[in-house]
């Protein structure tokens, strides 16, 4: 009886992990058809110092395996172009786009490599986060920092995925109890050709 109880306990401990792995593997297979994504996005930044969220709007482009253009159109125009080689960040200044020289772009590369992974259904491949998956009307992935590297920076990231085409619908990045950023993707177009210059030229 004691032995059976132990086996049951082990099964209970091991089984959810196995299910999680299968779910993430399935999600990855379901997302394999995604070659390109283009979308508009609305970003709402909430924090204690703000009475209402600060709203930013922009456009998002993705091409597998890892090309991203993340462009804010207002209130501050900025463009991040990230690819397998490098990440560059441009900001509007004096009517033209100039490259950010602070080295912040390299920090952004870590983020945008992660985002590129999400677009192709890879949510549990980064050991810096522990990923959990919940199925409902939409698929919800929660990423929590697993180490101390991101302590005080990010509490968790919640990503909702369309059950229909497996595209990312929204990202909620919780910094702490008083600050979070929510990004909602709209007018999502999947697998329509995107000209390569989108991932090279700032314009």
């Amino acid at each position: 009886m004691k032995k059976t109880g132990l086996i049951l306990l082990l099964l209970l401990l091991v089984l959810p992990a196995a299910v999680r792995a299968d779910d993430f593997e399935q999600l990855r297979k379901d997302s394999a058809h995604i070659a390109t994504i283009s979308a508009d996005f609305v970003q709402k930044k909430s924090m204690k110092i703000l009475s209402i969220p600060l709203i930013s709007e922009g456009k998002f482009f993705y091409a597998a395996p890892a090309s991203i253009r993340w462009e804010y159109q207002k209130p501050l125009r900025s463009v991040i172009i990230s690819g397998p080689g490098a990440t560059r960040r441009y900001i509007a200044s004096g009517g033209k786009m100039i490259e950010d020289k602070t080295g912040g772009a390299q920090a952004m590369k870590i983020v945008f490599d992660e985002v590129a992974g999400w677009m192709s259904g890879k949510f549990n491949s980064n050991s810096a986060f522990t990923a959990t998956l919940k199925e409902g009307p939409v698929t919800q992935i929660t990423l929590k920092p697993s180490g101390k590297n991101m302590a005080g920076m990010i509490e968790k990231i919640e990503i909702t995925i369309s059950r229909k085409d497996r595209s990312v619908q929204s990202v909620r990045l919780v910094e702490n109890a008083n600050a979070e950023t929510r990004i909602d993707f709209q007018h999502v177009v999947i697998n329509q050709g995107i000209h390569p210059s989108v991932f090279q030229d700032v314009q």
Binding site: K45, Y72, P75, L76, S78, I80, I91, T102
Partner: peptide, 25 residues
């Protein structure tokens, strides 16, 4: 670089609350 700055100021108590954000929020 360019950032976003939020400042909340109370001239009576001379209290300043401020936050600096990246363009990405």
């Amino acid at each position: 670089t360019v950032m976003i700055g939020v400042t909340l100021m109370d001239p009576f108590s001379r209290t300043i609350t401020c936050a600096l954000m990246s363009a990405e929020g």
